[in-house]
C-alpha cells in the first residue's frame, strides 16, 4: 500500500505538470487529459481500497443475518454514488461548466436520498414485525 500511494502521488503530480504545460502551449486536449487522469487515478484508488470494500461486504453479510436489508451494502452504494458525483462535478467545474456540475451534484444527492428511503422503509418494517409479535 505504501508503494501504491507513492505511485498515485507521483502520477498525480506528473499529470498536473503535464496539463499545466499543455495549458501554456494552448492545446485543446487539456480537458480530455484532465478527465483521463482523474479516471486513471480513481480506478487505481478503487483497486487499492478493494480489501476494505471486501471487509465491509463481509460485515454486510453478518449484518444481513440481523436485518433483512443489508444496510451496509446500501451505505457502500451511497458512498460510491457520492464519490462518482463529486469527481464528475469537479471535472465539470474544471472545464468551466458550473451549471452542469450543479445538476450532477443534485442528481447525486437525490440518488443517495432514494437509497436512504429504502433504509427508512426497513426501519418501519422492523417496527411492524415487533408489533406483530404480540403477547
Amino acid at each position: 500500500m505504501s508503494d501504491l500511494i507513492l505511485k498515485i502521488c507521483g502520477a498525480a503530480i506528473l499529470s498536473a505538470i503535464f496539463i499545466l504545460i499543455l495549458k501554456k502551449s494552448g492545446s485543446d486536449s487539456v480537458p480530455l487529459l484532465k478527465i483521463a487522469a482523474v479516471i486513471l487515478l480513481c480506478g487505481t484508488c478503487v483497486m487499492a481500497f478493494s480489501p476494505i470494500i471486501e471487509y465491509m461486504r463481509s460485515l454486510s453479510d453478518a449484518v444481513g443475518s440481523l436485518s433483512s436489508v443489508s444496510a451496509i451494502s446500501v451505505l457502500l452504494k451511497a458512498l460510491c454514488v457520492a464519490f462518482l458525483t463529486y469527481i464528475c462535478a469537479s471535472v465539470c467545474r474544471e472545464c468551466g461548466e458550473g451549471g452542469i456540475a450543479y445538476f450532477v451534484e443534485l442528481a447525486g444527492k437525490g440518488e443517495i436520498i432514494l437509497l436512504s428511503l429504502e433504509l427508512i422503509g426497513e426501519i418501519f418494517k422492523v417496527a411492524e414485525k415487533i408489533l406483530d409479535l404480540g403477547i
Binding site: 449484518v63 440481523l66 436485518s67 444496510a71 451496509i72 436512504s116 433504509l119 426497513e122 426501519i123 422492523v126
Partner: peptide, 8 residues
C-alpha cells in the same frame, strides 16, 4: 440511517 437500521 444505516446505523439505526442495524440497531433497530
Amino acid at each position: 440511517l444505516c446505523t439505526y437500521s442495524v440497531i433497530a
